[in-house]
Write a protein that binds this DNA or RNA. Structure first.
Length: 658
RNA sequence: GCUGCCGUAGCUCAGGGGUAGAGCACUCCCUUGGUAAGGGAGAGGCCGGAAGUUCAAAUCUUCUCGGCAGCACCA
């Protein structure tokens, strides 16, 4: 078998096969067996995924990639994007292609076209994709000269592609993939032919997306698709999506009668009694937690003079997100403008920090006073873009579980560790043992010098390292006054939302003239740590509703139990049970309606009441209750006194507060 | 804010150039029924708003407001 230039390929099981040159992934797969040759999508060479047709020149560790591998699925999705692009360009000549990456569960491709695609186009495109798969076009990798490639794409009117190649780092190999008549610039790797994609894909939706993610650039039209290894998985995915939609907090909010939104107060929540009960419970819990961590709660003004915001830097960096309020008596004169053009301006606070600095500034502070941990359930208003609003997750009026830690430079690490400790234990208590941490660095629009940012970013990262948490980066995502840690949680359909945050701010206290007297007797500017554990009560409740699909823990549930007699015969006993539970401090309802027990059970189940307590003649005679828990079809019959004890225990907050 | 889609009773949705329908919810009546919808009767909308085309518009056109998804922005 060996010859002058043999290539040794070592398989994952450790066995080595030797081939004469030229050798490719296809050679290897064919050598192993016809079944694998058919299933092969690509080959992993020393950890990198290569096309099957690419020649392997040296001895390597290899593995054939099939659909069953995670890498294989990614290949399928990537090729689905390419095949979609081919279909689009066949059907809509003149459309330019830009980028088409793999994303979670699928792929997308951004196109430039005068008229954006509509939902109706998707069907046609999808049909053509299936045809391209049937054609089973061979996919061929070619290495092109950079300048030739640029010239070529310019010539055929693909200006975005030409721009992409132009911006490739020097020395990067320009590879082109050909499938049938069509070709695209791509790093690869790809399947050997379009037929390997199969039919487990579906185009999902059209959306606009800015070229290079910048709203100053032109908007492209993006087509999203999903792609799986087989139809069964595709179906399962679509089913999962449907199920997730049932957990949408906006839907559950209506069904459970928690809150509503209406256009006269866009982005601001009307909390109903039940929703506000949850709010109050959560607030009570977090309040007791911050007390435990030595925070002092304050309450500061809602409307402040614009000159105040000028000082804080908000006027320059944040004004477009602020609600401005004229400080003037509105004119009642017919036809006259309500507010004169030279009215003095105030603004609703978008953040609590400048107000907290004012509290700090009252009286002289010593270094011995630090750290000062000031907390506020601060109601803030931000004029968010219409398109950004989203149920409870993104609102215009929000209540943060805000806090500012005024500390010395040398206290940053300890305070960061303490905060992360608090946050992690709160998240654990609330059902989120896992969360994502990101370090967000300096944005384009910022105040403060580069030196102060260098320093702030470094000390925040050092402090973060000291917490031992795993973290990633969010470049350019910091607040305008400082870098921040972001703590993210997911909603029902996997979108991630920033909840908790810790922001290191070396600038604001200085801008607002806050100082303390140091050990040396001189004035120093305190460091401010802006921090929120939940982030906002609105968003966090939204996340919790989705996380628990409405079936929140009993301590948080607006109605903890419903007592439902089977017939009026047990009405008196039901009343007695109800009274005792209420007297024990539980949020309980009594359902005496003349309805069948089936009907009552169904209704309270839909409302996600944690416990339905059914009582009939038997229970009345024996002093028991029949308990049906939400999410279960079983019932347990136990003595009422026992049940009450268990319920009161369960209704206790995670940290033991009643 | 940008792109696409959508906007009919409280909710979910059907209809579609000749002045509007279903199920659930609501009100009343019958039913006292053992763990996710018992039966009957009734009330409720002028079809997001404005303008236009037409003998005639919820149905077509334009504009506008709002919702949803994505993008951008952000807790």
């Amino acid at each position: 078998m060996s010859s002058n230039n043999p290539v040794n390929l070592r398989l994952p099981d450790g066995s080595v096969r030797t081939f004469d040159k030229p050798v490719t992934g296809t050679t290897l797969a064919a050598d192993i067996g016809p079944g694998l040759l058919k299933a092969a999508l690509a080959i992993k060479v020393n950890g990198d995924i290569w096309d099957l047709s690419r020649e392997i020149e040296e001895d390597s560790d290899v593995a054939i990639v099939t659909k069953k591998d995670e890498d294989g699925l990614e290949l399928l999705r990537h090729d689905a994007a390419h095949i979609m692009a081919e279909a689009v360009q066949e059907l809509f000549p003149g459309t330019q292609v830009t980028i088409g990456p793999v994303i979670e569960n699928g792929f997308f491709y951004d196109f430039a076209r005068d008229k954006p695609f509509s939902d109706d186009d998707l069907e046609v495109i999808e049909k053509r994709m299936h045809e391209i798969v049937k054609r089973n076009e061979e996919i061929i990798r070619e290495v092109w000269d950079r300048d030739e490639a640029i010239a070529y794409f310019k010539k055929i009117g693909e200006h975005y592609k030409a721009e992409i190649i132009t911006d490739l780092p020097e020395g990067e190999v320009v590879t082109i993939y050909r499938q049938g008549e069509w070709l695209d610039l791509c790093r690869g790797p790809h399947l050997p032919s379009t037929g390997k994609l199969g039919d487990a894909f579906k185009l999902m939706k059209v959306a606009g997306a800015y070229w290079r993610g910048d709203s100053k650039n032109e908007m492209l039209t993006r087509i999203y698709g999903t792609c799986w290894t087989d139809k069964k998985e595709l179906k399962a995915y679509l089913h999962r999506l449907e199920e997730a939609e049932k957990r949408d907090h906006r839907k559950l909010g209506r069904e459970m009668d928690l809150f509503h939104l209406q256009e006269e107060a866009q982005g601001s929540v009307f909390w109903h009694p039940k929703g506000y009960t949850m709010w109050l419970q959560l607030e009570k819990y977090i309040r007791s937690r911050i007390q435990e961590f030595d925070y002092q709660e304050v309450k500061t003004p809602q409307v402040l003079d614009s000159k105040f915001w000028e000082q804080s830097g908000h006027w320059a960096k944040f004004r477009e997100n602020m609600f401005v309020v004229p400080d003037e008596t509105p004119s009642t004169e017919e036809g006259a403008p309500i507010i004169s053009p030279d009215a003095k301006l105030m603004a609703l606070k978008p953040m609590n920090c400048p107000a907290h600095v004012q509290v700090f500034k009252q009286g002289i502070k010593s270094y011995r006073d630090l750290p000062i941990r000031m907390a506020e359930f601060g109601c803030c208003h931000r004029n968010e873009a219409h398109g950004a609003l989203h149920g409870l997750m993104r609102v215009r009026q929000m209540t943060q579980d805000d806090g500012h830690i005024f500390c010395r430079e040398d206290q940053i690490t300890e305070e960061t560790i303490k905060f992360c400790e608090l946050l992690a234990s709160v998240y654990r208590d609330l059902g989120f043992p896992e969360f994502r941490v990101l370090l967000a660095t300096r944005p384009e629009k910022r105040s403060g010098t580069d030196e102060s940012w260098d320093h702030a970013e470094k000390s925040l990262e050092d402090a973060l390292k000291a917490t031992g948490l795993d973290y990633g980066f969010a470049p350019g995502e910091g607040a305008f006054y400082g870098p921040k840690l972001e703590f993210h949680l997911n909603d029902a359909i996997g979108r991630t939302w920033q909840c908790g945050t810790l922001q290191l701010d070396p600038n604001m206290a200085k801008n607002l003239g806050a100082t303390y007297i140091g050990e040396d007797g001189n004035k120093h500017t305190p460091i401010m740590l802006h921090r929120a554990v939940l982030g906002t009560l609105e968003r966090f409740l939204g996340i919790m509703i989705e996380h628990y699909a409405g079936k929140v823990p009993m301590w948080l549930a607006p109605v903890q139990a419903v007592v439902a007699p089977i017939t009026s015969e047990a009405g008196e006993y039901a009343q007695e049970v109800f009274d005792k539970m209420q007297a024990a401090g539980m949020r309980v309802e009594l359902d005496l309606r003349n309805e069948k027990i089936n009907y009552k059970v169904r209704e309270h189940s839909v409302k996600k009441v944690p416990a339905i307590i059914v009582v009939g003649k038997r229970e009345a005679e024996q002093g028991t209750v029949s308990i049906r828990r939400i999410g279960s079809k079983d019932q347990t019959v136990i003595p009422f006194t026992e049940a009450l004890e268990a319920f009161t225990k369960e209704a206790t907050m995670p940290n033991g507060t009643a």
